[in-house]
Each structure stands twice: as C-alpha cells, then as structure tokens.
Amino acid sequence: MVTTVFVADDHPLLLHGLTDLIARDPDFLVVGSAQDGTAAMAMIQRDIPDVAVLDISMPGLSGLDIAAEIARQGLATLCVLLTVGASQAQLYDAVAVGVAGIVFKETAVEALLRCLHRVAAGGRWLPAEIVGEAVQNEASRRTRWQELSSRLTKREMEIARLVVANKPTGQIAFDIGISKGTLKIHMNNIYRKLEVASRAQLSQLAAGQIGLSAGSGFPDQSGLENPAGDA
C-alpha cells in the first residue's frame, strides 16, 4: 500500500530535493508541498496525508506548531520534523505532541527514507541519544520551574512574566504602576524564591513556562529509539 506524504520547507531548493527524493521511492506518493506553515496546515487539513514531513522552523506556523495543531484536531496525519539544530525545549515539545519522527538535516538523505518507512509501518524514529537527553534535561528544568514558581505571589509572577518578555526595568515599573525602588524589592524576592541570581538566569529557568500549571504532564519517553542501530 502506497503511503501519501506531504512536504513543507521554506527553502525552495531543499523542498524540491526532498519531494524528488521521496517521490522516487515507490512506497510513497507525494501529494503536496508548501514553503510556509500556514499554507501547509491548510493543505494537510484538506488532504489528510498519511505522513507530513515538516521543517521545524517555517514562516507563519512552524513545523512544531503544525504538529501540535494536528494532534489537537485529532487528524490521522503522522508528523516527521526536520531540523538543523532544535533546542531541548523544541525536542521536548515535539515528543510531547506525539511526533512520529525527528530527522536532523545534516544526516544522510537515506536516514529520511528509513525514517519514513519506519513511521509508515507504525513505528517511531526518535534518536534516543539526542532526544532522550533533551527530554530529560527539559523535564528537569520545567519541574524545577513549577516547584519554585509556586512560591511567587501574583504580583511577582506578573513581574517575572515581563522579565521573560525582555521588558526593561523602567518599563516594567511603569507598566504595573510601581516605583523602581519597589520593583527592585520585588526582583530581589523573586530571585531569592526562584534561587537565581540574575534576569538571564530567571529567563532561562522560566522560558516557555510562564502560565503553565504545575500539573502539566511530561512526554512519554518509553518509545524513544536508536535508529542508528537498525539494520
């Protein structure tokens, strides 16, 4: 049975190369392609391909955004993400939304085809030596944020959110209607409660987490595999 595949990448030459590579394999049928995430999402919703190969970073919607939306809508399309150098947070989120595969662009093109064959057969292609470590590290950071941020008052959380948004100190004081001196007191309390020593450390700890509840779940790592070990 032929597996239908949709491909999205914002680099035209790479997009053409990927579609040509996949189309040459008789087990796959490329049913569409796009150079931006918004167009890709619309076409996936319309055609419901078996597999969507998505650049993790694209204009409009990222591949990660699309994978999350596909999961939210309960579409049957399985997602394979392409990346040059995804952050630990991106890899964590990818596993959390249930992507079927992650392929690094610097690997041999054969790796993508092997990944697609694995995914089409109902498996996953998530290199444990990279994804596993990222998920563990990111889970630890998020757990630490959830535990420490529960110490913050509502006002302190508001200030922390503005710090993570990279607002200047003077702007933060103006936005919430307090003096710079009062803000400094709040900042010292925030640093103490979060066990950090600077705005940079606060931002690193809280990145992507402000507004998430302590009950947020962590992705299941049991399916992480080592594709390199396959025959």
Rank of each mutant, 00 (worst) to 15 (best):
T83L: 01
G98H: 08
A108K: 13
A96P: 04
A94S: 15
E106I: 12
K105G: 07
Y92G: 11
L91A: 10
L91V: 10
V109F: 14
A108S: 13
V97A: 04
L82T: 06
E106S: 06
A96H: 15
Q90K: 08
K105M: 06
G85D: 13
V97Q: 09
V84F: 04
V103T: 06
A94N: 03
S87L: 04
Q88V: 02
F104N: 08
D93H: 15
A89K: 11
L81R: 04
T83G: 03
G98A: 04
V109T: 15
A96G: 00
L81T: 09
V109D: 10
G101L: 09
A94Q: 11
Q90W: 07
T83H: 05
G98K: 01
A108N: 11
A96E: 09
G85V: 02
D93G: 07
F104D: 07
Y92S: 12
L82C: 06
V109M: 14
A94C: 12
V84L: 09
L82P: 05
A86S: 12
V103P: 02
S87T: 15
F104K: 12
Y92A: 02
V99E: 01
V95R: 02
V109S: 13
F104P: 00
L91G: 11
V99K: 01
E106T: 11
V84K: 06
F104I: 12
L91C: 11
A86C: 06
V95F: 03
K105A: 07
V80F: 01
F104M: 12
A100Q: 09
L91W: 11
G98E: 01
A86R: 00
Q90H: 09
Q88Y: 13
A100Y: 02
T83S: 13
E106N: 06
A89I: 12
